[in-house]
Amino acid sequence: MNDVMEKTPATAAGSQHPAQREHKAKFLLYLSGVSVAFDGFKAINNLSLFLEPGEMRAIIGPNGAGKTTMMDIITGKTRPDEGEVFFDGDIDLTKHDEADIANMGIGRKFQKPTVFETLSVEDNILLALAGQRRALPALFYRSNAADMAKIGEILDTVRLSDRRQDLAANLSHGQKQWLEIGMLLAQKPKLLLVDEPVAGMTDSETEETAKLLREIAREQSVVVVEHDMHFVRELGVKVTCLHEGSVLAEGSLDHVSSNQKVIDVYLGR
């Protein structure tokens, strides 16, 4: 935790030196000194996290470490009590709501797969396709070859091409996770936030998912929250360990997992 704090200048709200602004501009996602409390309980406590463009980052940590709350803050669902959250250099995320943030290019996958169960797989992707988000023009939308081709491409990527016309409700748990990732891809986000993508998946599905995420990370930045250490190893990326709302350790998986504090609070015994 200390080395992280040393690396970043303490950010007092309001004072914005040009050097600092430049510093922010280097990162795709910039969280500094963020805190939020619910009924006096500090879910996030002075958290700082920096993500470079094109980077894939794995977040690990015990239950209640603040992983989901951190995602809520980034996507505008929860407002931080203090701290700075910037995206793409100079966009202050605390001033925007979920829909705005989604349209800026941050996609999010929930812990529990959330797809539109009563719509077909194709329609799920169709709704997520980047483009018009206003309600009324959707009344007069006509399906076209270009969109259909894009959908086909995405379904190929997430291995759901043969389920295209099925209702999402009829997919298996793992397939729903993939469909949700497919919807994220359709959004063409700059940054993907993925919450426990392999929970409840079989080993082979887990491996496939890791492959899929690595493919995605070639073009987009990704933050993955995951408990499955096997899966995290598979990803082979920089790891941040959260504990009680702040960063406990950061670095390669080997570096993090050899950290005594991490072993004490998370990897355990």
Binding site: T75, K77, E98, A99, A102, N103, G107, R108, F110, T114, V115, F116, E117, T118, L119, D123, L126, L127, A128, R133, A135, A138, M183, Q187
Partner: peptide, 18 residues
């Protein structure tokens, strides 16, 4: 379809950008 999507999973539609 968006309407049904909102009915079934409102937060999801929000995070897609609707």
């Amino acid at each position: 379809k968006i309407l049904v999507a909102v009915r079934d999973a409102e937060p999801r539609t929000r995070f897609i950008g609707y």
